[in-house]
Amino acid sequence: MTAISDISLTDEQRVQFARDGYLVARGMLAPEEAASIREAFMEQNAGGPVPGLSEVRESRADNNPADPLSFYPRMMHPHRRPELAVGALSLQYMLDERFYPILCELMRDEPVAVQSMFYFKPPGARGQELHQDNYYLRVSPGVCMAAWIAVDDVDAENGGIKVVPGSQYEEIACPEKADPAVSFTSDYVPVPAGMQAVHCDMTAGDVLFFDGRLIHGSTPNTSTDRFRRSLIFHYVPESSEEMSEGYSTRLTFDGFQVDHITAAVGGGPCGVLHPLPLH
């Protein structure tokens, strides 16, 4: 494992993040690490959705057996299941020391790990419409940060992630309704005037770091034989005072639980009558 002292951002990366709200750390994980993550999650899901781990909602269209996501829904908070191989692996990478110096510099604070997710996105799966992560996490003051690990090579064909550079300077928006034919989630944040969404091609092992206000999402996987698997973590600044309920894990990179962050109140940008759902 690379030592913390050997990792730092280049001046070009600092400028890019300040301008665009994201950066890609190429080759942060070795190919064999990406392969081990991929194999562990595929083995865990070999029999289909896992109770208490896979996100299955009775009202969702992806419960249709014809939908690829009915067998491969995303896994939420796998780090909370340390008795499972995927749980131990998620917690290991969630607190991986290679992420620490980058998060510290980008967040200008000590990072606190609060969420893990795994997306399978098999061939034919719908995407996830454009959205902003801090709409869900509701971190204040400050904003959450994501570390998005490409577990496969990702591009436009297999529904790789797309971002809207510069949108991190926009306010958190109240989403519109997404088209369920192309998005498995219901929220959609339009691209602001004068901006555009661009695909962020990545190789397995690359890590995308991005601001929680950045508008991002993905298109459907139109390939016939390529998954687009990704392991994703969210972090918040240690100086945060409040955050959405439900994110009970709040770990420093030393493994200590942070207890001072209270539950966010009110309804967020959609108004007090529309409380925000958990991500």
Rank of each mutant, 00 (worst) to 15 (best):
F253L: 03
A85K: 11
E32G: 03
P101K: 01
M76H: 08
A181V: 09
L84R: 03
T252E: 14
P73F: 02
A40N: 02
A156M: 05
E110V: 00
N221K: 07
V182A: 02
D11H: 11
Y136R: 01
E242Q: 15
V207N: 05
A156P: 03
N134A: 10
V86D: 02
D109C: 02
R26I: 01
G267F: 10
H79L: 12
E83T: 13
A30I: 01
P269N: 09
A125T: 11
R226I: 06
S167M: 10
T2P: 13
F184S: 06
S244Y: 05
M117L: 14
S186M: 00
A125V: 05
G266E: 09
N158D: 10
Q16R: 14
V24Y: 12
M202K: 08
E241H: 13
F120W: 07
M107G: 00
I37Q: 06
R250E: 10
L278K: 14
P82A: 06
A34S: 14
G87M: 04
G212V: 14
R81D: 10
M1H: 10
A88V: 10
V198Y: 13
S186H: 01
T249R: 14
T203S: 09
Y188G: 10
D62W: 14
N45D: 08
D6G: 08
K121D: 03
A46Q: 11
P31E: 12
E105V: 01
M28E: 03
G52V: 08
G87R: 01
H216L: 03
N63H: 04
P65D: 09
G266R: 05
V265G: 06
E245N: 11
E97Q: 08
Y100L: 14
D67H: 04
F253Q: 06
F99I: 09
V151F: 10
M42W: 04
K162Y: 04
L130F: 12
P123T: 11
Q13K: 11
D109L: 05
E245F: 12
D259N: 09
A204H: 04
N45G: 00
S230A: 14
L137N: 09
M42F: 14
Q257A: 00
E58A: 15
C144W: 04
Y119S: 10
E58L: 14
V272K: 08
G271C: 10
A40W: 05
R228V: 01
